[in-house]
Write a protein that binds this DNA or RNA. Sequence first.
DNA 1: CTGTTAGCGCTTTCAA
DNA 2: TTGAAAGCGCTAACAG
Lengths: 340, 340
Amino acid sequence: MIKHRKKSSVTAQDVALRAGVSRAAVSRTFTNNGSVAKHTREKVLQAANELGYQVNFLAQGLNRKRSQLIGVVVARLSDPFRSGLLEGLLLEIQRQGYQAMVTEVRNADGLEETIRRFTQFRVSGVIVTSGQPPSELVNECVQHNIPVVGINRQMDIKDVDFVCSDNKAGAALAAQQLLESGCKQLAWLNYKDSTWGGINRGECFKHAIDQHQLQALELLAEQDGYQGGRQAAHQLCASQNWNIDGVFCANAQLACGFLDGMREQGFSAPQDFHLIGFDDTELTGQYSYQLTTIRQNIDLIAKQAVLNLQARGRDNTAKQRFDLVPVTLTLRATSPALTD
Amino acid sequence: MIKHRKKSSVTAQDVALRAGVSRAAVSRTFTNNGSVAKHTREKVLQAANELGYQVNFLAQGLNRKRSQLIGVVVARLSDPFRSGLLEGLLLEIQRQGYQAMVTEVRNADGLEETIRRFTQFRVSGVIVTSGQPPSELVNECVQHNIPVVGINRQMDIKDVDFVCSDNKAGAALAAQQLLESGCKQLAWLNYKDSTWGGINRGECFKHAIDQHQLQALELLAEQDGYQGGRQAAHQLCASQNWNIDGVFCANAQLACGFLDGMREQGFSAPQDFHLIGFDDTELTGQYSYQLTTIRQNIDLIAKQAVLNLQARGRDNTAKQRFDLVPVTLTLRATSPALTD
DNA sequence: CTGTTAGCGCTTTCAA
DNA sequence: TTGAAAGCGCTAACAG
């Protein structure tokens, strides 16, 4: 009775044996690395097929000192823009033949731990969509030759590439639209502990209307997201004789909340005021909102992020990059197209 | 001049050398596996600290034939429920000390490729929140001793554990609420190519009202999501003398779309009809919707899923599990609480 | 409790 | 173009 030792998985050795070649030949055909004779290659492929061979990525990565993993840091996926961005990133990462490791991070400690974990898996790159990577950690990545790219983050870290929606252009578009629509009293709504992206948009907005000798009232929501926007609206209405007629918001959630908050008080857009958000999520297009927004090009952002990772993977001496991704104005009901 | 060879990363060997112990001792202290004298342990820890040593997970996994990775299959993250579920899963996966690999899958081929990739990384488990894993692939997992759990999927695959919201209870709650609110003509709205979860809810709903000698009109949306619901409403209104006064929807997106669609035609809930959705996403609670829904307990689902993975990892001979996670009725404006 | 040893499965020089 | 051989960094018997 033959003891048929059941191996848990087929290895390159098994394939080599069956194809009558060496382990090296198998490796070569599967990585398109060295040169393999057409004939050998076919033998290997057939044997592999018959055996159901699959490369062990752990072993491969260990050897190459680099896995085909890309680490992605996310937070607050409940925000549709953020989940949309993640979706875009996943698609692009997969399209380029990588596999995404994703971590939800709640605070700076979490970020640190996460990035450390990423390096332990020898990822090919790290994409940060939330939080500010501590420069010490980034250094660790650089030492391991792991490229890091930040999306919509403050661009103040050495050795990290950034891709960011063109907040300045977006703010200018919003300002232009509001002013050309005849708004006289503008306001800017943001979460009080906003991320850099929001703050940056606000600064750009103020700067844009400053050109017209105007100033924006600054509304700071106590909470983030929908509820924050709603409460901000309530507060605004509670204040005596407010006369705002044009509002620009740091993101779509705030904007929708603000719109609803105003509605609760009996005001609506565009009748009583104009409203422009930022992000253009699915929600903003819905009948009950029909929000005019600045649209971020998620696909492009994702593509650019992965591209940067790859580029720096090839040449880590490249100069730090700051990519601005164009945004567009999506006109809907809350600040409709101008009809000359 | 000493040639100081710059090693790219610190290995257990380096730590061992510095601490004056063997490589094995280092391994032991870091995996809490064998027994280590307190003193040795401390020496190792200190040396590791000084050197900035981090376990190489690729090597560890290769050796153990199992990485601390968990593969998660997702789709259509634009649906808030789905992104919420992913968030819950990420949190739980991390809490249990694993790291999530996530793949967005668009079709059956993609699922197959993905699961294969997961096995190549020797994941500790696979969580499928979208698509139906081909049983052939599942077999491959089982061979590699990789547990698979499906969430809200059809429970018809051998060797896969399932965790699923209690659709039956949810449908019953919805039916009860609608009937007790005085609705006489019920309808059930679903996407025409719905996933199993939706279909199952519908069947349960029909069954529930059947007990009261009632039948539900079946509304099938041509599209999924918000727009599908909206169009379904338009279609309903276009049909002559419809007299529906209570609607149950397969998910929140459809429900919100339906509500908006009806509003566009001049009808609203709860004045003209009652409406209950399924999922209870952030959106459903917003002022403009205030949808009464059946709430799925995402945290529990996530917890249960990871638990099942772990349990089966320990004992893969365990009996196939079908876990039902309780749901609750969240009463809001579109079908308000009964006031006796 | 500790060190020695033999791999895990793959890639990659280096000669042939 | 091919094979032999030396690791990648870690774990897990096994013997002391």
